[in-house]
């Protein structure tokens, strides 16, 4: 090749079409915001129905997770996510999708090594680093109280 790898990588980057960042952000904001508003509405309805604040928030999370699982199983979640991006990834529905999708996909490999193991292929890192972050947060808080 009479072109250096550096030159070629520059050429390849130049010729690659860019993602439409503004449109992607707006769609993510719209869909993500709608999911959060739906969660808020469920929580408010729960409170109006006599639930305490904590229980009402729990109801909102549970309902959204259920909805996400249903939409994933029906093959609709990925269609929405294709447009919404981070809008469907960041809320709790994204986590539910990340657990359900591999569970459906890998059930052909058995209930233990397939479904059981691979259910965490996408969500696993979120759990590991989520727990790690909360441990660090806890330690900092404990240190601050001791001071």
């Amino acid at each position: 090749m009479d072109i250096t790898p550096q030159e070629y990588r520059k050429l390849a980057e130049k010729s690659a079409p860019r993602s439409p960042v503004l449109a992607d952000c707006l769609k993510a904001f719209g869909v993500g915001g709608t999911i959060c508003m739906l969660g808020q509405a469920i929580a408010l309805a729960g409170q109006a129905g006599g639930l305490g604040e904590k229980d009402a928030l729990f109801l909102a999370s549970l309902t959204l997770v259920l909805l996400s699982v249903l939409l994933t199983a029906l093959g609709a979640y990925d269609v929405i996510a294709k447009h919404a991006g981070a809008g469907t990834l960041v809320p709790i529905t994204g986590f539910a999708n990340a657990m359900t999708a591999p569970a459906i996909e890998y059930k052909t490999e058995g209930l233990v090594m397939g479904l059981g193991t691979k259910m965490f292929t996408i969500a696993g890192p979120v759990l590991v680093y989520g727990v790690l972050a909360s441990v660090i947060y806890g330690l900092i808080q404990a240190a601050l109280t001791l001071l």
Binding site: S19, T72, A101, P102, I104, I122
Partner: peptide, 17 residues
């Protein structure tokens, strides 16, 4: 998809390339 990327029903986005 299953082997190289994500499960089919996972909500990811593909890049233009």
């Amino acid at each position: 998809e299953r082997q190289f990327r994500y499960p089919l029903t996972y909500g990811g986005q593909r890049t233009p390339t």
